[in-house]
Amino acid sequence: MAIKYERMACAALSGMLLCGCSTAPRFDENFGTSVRANAVAQVLDPSAAANTNPAAGMDGSAAVIAHGRYQDSFKATEPPIKSLIINGMGSK
Rank of each mutant, 00 (worst) to 15 (best):
M1G: 07
I3T: 11
I3Y: 03
K4I: 13
K4H: 03
K4T: 04
Y5F: 05
M8W: 03
A9N: 09
C10R: 10
A11G: 04
A12N: 10
A12G: 03
A12Q: 10
L13V: 07
G15Q: 06
M16R: 11
L17C: 06
G20R: 08
C21K: 01
T23V: 08
A24Y: 10
P25E: 10
P25W: 08
R26L: 15
R26F: 12
N30D: 15
T33K: 15
T33M: 15
S34Y: 06
N38A: 15
N38L: 15
A39T: 13
V40N: 07
A41D: 14
V43M: 00
L44W: 01
L44D: 05
L44Y: 02
D45Y: 04
D45I: 05
D45F: 03
D45V: 01
S47D: 11
S47V: 05
A49K: 06
A49G: 04
A49D: 01
A50L: 05
N51F: 02
P54Y: 01
A55I: 11
M58Q: 12
D59L: 02
A62D: 07
I65G: 01
A66Q: 14
H67F: 13
H67R: 03
H67L: 10
Y70L: 12
Q71K: 09
Q71H: 05
D72R: 05
A76N: 15
A76S: 14
T77F: 10
P79L: 10
P80H: 05
I85K: 09
N87I: 04
N87H: 14
N87Q: 09
N87W: 11
G88C: 11
S91R: 10
K92L: 11
